[in-house]
């Protein structure tokens, strides 16, 4: 399959990329790892006239411990996120989600920023960002701004990024002590996309659940939080019974997609089942049970 013709630009700095975005506006599209965009271009579902490749922009690939937060450059590949000792030990949910994306070759090219900016409903990372209360840093011609994950995913394939902005960094606030997290998904076997993906983050205080955050990917048009489950679990005894009860509300307020891969009813069912499993794992980790 041959994509439509386009003009190729390979800026070496964010400033140059912003200049090109300003010049070509709506006719331009940013290319990161290309593993969402190029398949769409091959199907001609996307046909940008100008492709601005961020592959040669220096300084957008890093994972740094900055004290209060871990900063991840937008062009960091899923492979690098999955392999990062820092993330594996401190933010397991993100490392596990990155490791579950596509396959080895896809993870070697695909990037965290590209995936988030594309906001595919079947992508793994949006729900993880919500559960982590991550912040997304965007640079535009007039400066830099930080967008809370909760405000970032606005609609199907749509984000709060302005057409003339570049997502440059993802910031993960440090999780409190006695916190465990995990990512669990039911994947489409061919594509690896999430039919249901659950990001669970649980903090315990003694024998009580102090906080629980659950991000849901793959189910609705955008990722969302299972706030009913979160509320039902906060303040409850930190055990499997409480998790089981709370997980019953995991699909509340989500309008599930139905397609050839899974009906809306089946997706709702899977959300509850996977929320329970993921929360139990996260809870076990929070209690130091691996």
């Amino acid at each position: 399959m041959i994509p439509s013709a386009f003009e190729y630009h390979s800026p070496t700095s964010v400033e140059d990329a912003l200049g090109l975005l300003g010049r070509f506006g709506d006719d331009a599209k940013l290319l990161a790892g290309g593993h969402s965009l190029i398949p769409l271009m091959k199907l001609r579902l996307a046909a940008p006239e100008h492709l601005i490749d961020l592959g040669r922009v220096q300084g957008l690939s890093y994972i740094r411990d900055e004290g209060g937060a871990i900063a991840i450059g937008a062009m960091t590949t899923h492979s690098a996120v999955a392999a990062s000792e820092l993330l594996r030990s401190r933010v397991a949910v993100l490392a596990e989600a990155a490791a579950s994306i596509g396959d080895v070759q896809v993870r070697n090219r695909g990037t965290i920023g590209g995936s988030l900016a594309h906001a595919d409903p079947g992508a793994d990372l949006p729900g993880v960002m919500l559960a982590l209360n991550a912040e997304l840093v965007a640079r535009g011609a007039s400066g830099t701004r930080t967008i809370a994950a909760a405000d970032f995913f606005t609609d199907l394939l749509s984000t709060a990024l302005e057409p003339n902005e570049v997502l440059t960094e993802i910031r993960i606030p440090v999780l409190p002590a006695n916190t465990g997290s995990t990512y669990l998904k039911f994947a489409n076997q061919a594509s690896g996309y999430a039919i249901v993906g659950i990001a669970a983050v649980v903090t315990v205080s003694g024998a009580t659940v102090a906080d629980a955050r659950v991000g849901v990917s793959g189910v609705g048009e955008t990722a969302s939080r299972a706030s009913g489950t979160e509320q039902a679990l906060r303040g409850q005894p930190a055990n499997a019974d409480a998790v089981k009860r709370a997980a019953q509300q995991a699909a509340d307020g989500i309008e599930p997609l139905g397609d050839i891969h899974a009906s809306a009813e089946y997706r709702s069912h899977l959300v509850r089942v996977f929320a329970e499993r993921a929360l139990n794992t996260a809870l076990g980790r929070a209690q130091g049970r691996g």
């Binding site: 190029i38 398949p39 070759q105 896809v106 070697n108 090219r109």
Partner: peptide, 22 residues
């Protein structure tokens, strides 16, 4: 369509799908 891996090559020693790169 980026799924089967028949087009896999090494790009600077990293396995990538050459059908999903320009």
């Amino acid at each position: 369509t980026s799924q089967c891996g028949a087009c896999t090559i090494l790009l600077d020693d990293i396995a990538v799908k050459s059908c999903t790169m320009f």
